[in-house]
Simulated scan of single mutants.
Amino acid sequence: MRAVAWDEEPTSATYHLGPYGEVPQFITDQLIKMVEDAQATADQLLRNLLGFSAYLSITGIVNPAYEVGAVVEVRRARSHVAGLYAVDSFNVPLDAKGTQALTLRQKRTAGGG
């Protein structure tokens, strides 16, 4: 039996038509006897490998040094948020007394944090 599962998300670093190209992983399993089972297994293995993204929007004091892709640590016990996030987008207010809004992303594995 044979099955194929590709990362189809164009914004993903492992997108199969992206800079890394198609990089296959071959799995052999004697228990898989049907094409449907092979495809389900391939799909699940890809999901486990890629994980999912958690998104978070925050506001805080202005820091004009932020760049897209920068990693920031966020901790807010009341919201049960603690971890490292990549900056996806942000604004830089022209008023020094203003607040800065950031949109953050965190890649997580399918099994949790």
Rank of each mutant, 00 (worst) to 15 (best):
R2M: 03
A3G: 03
W6E: 15
D7E: 04
E9Y: 13
E9F: 15
T11P: 01
H16R: 04
L17M: 05
L17D: 10
L17V: 04
Y20G: 15
E22L: 07
V23N: 12
F26N: 11
I27L: 05
L31E: 08
I32T: 02
M34D: 01
V35H: 11
E36W: 08
D37P: 03
Q39E: 09
A40Q: 11
T41Q: 06
T41R: 05
L49Q: 12
L49K: 15
L50W: 10
F52Q: 15
F52L: 09
S53H: 14
I58S: 00
G60A: 09
A65K: 08
V68E: 13
V72M: 10
V72A: 07
V74F: 09
A77P: 02
R78N: 10
R78T: 13
S79L: 07
A82S: 15
Y85N: 10
D88W: 03
S89N: 14
S89I: 11
S89Q: 14
F90A: 05
V92F: 00
L94F: 11
D95Q: 04
D95N: 02
A96T: 09
A96L: 06
A96P: 13
K97E: 14
G98E: 07
T99M: 11
A101D: 13
T103H: 10
K107V: 00
R108C: 04
G112R: 01
G113L: 13
G113H: 09
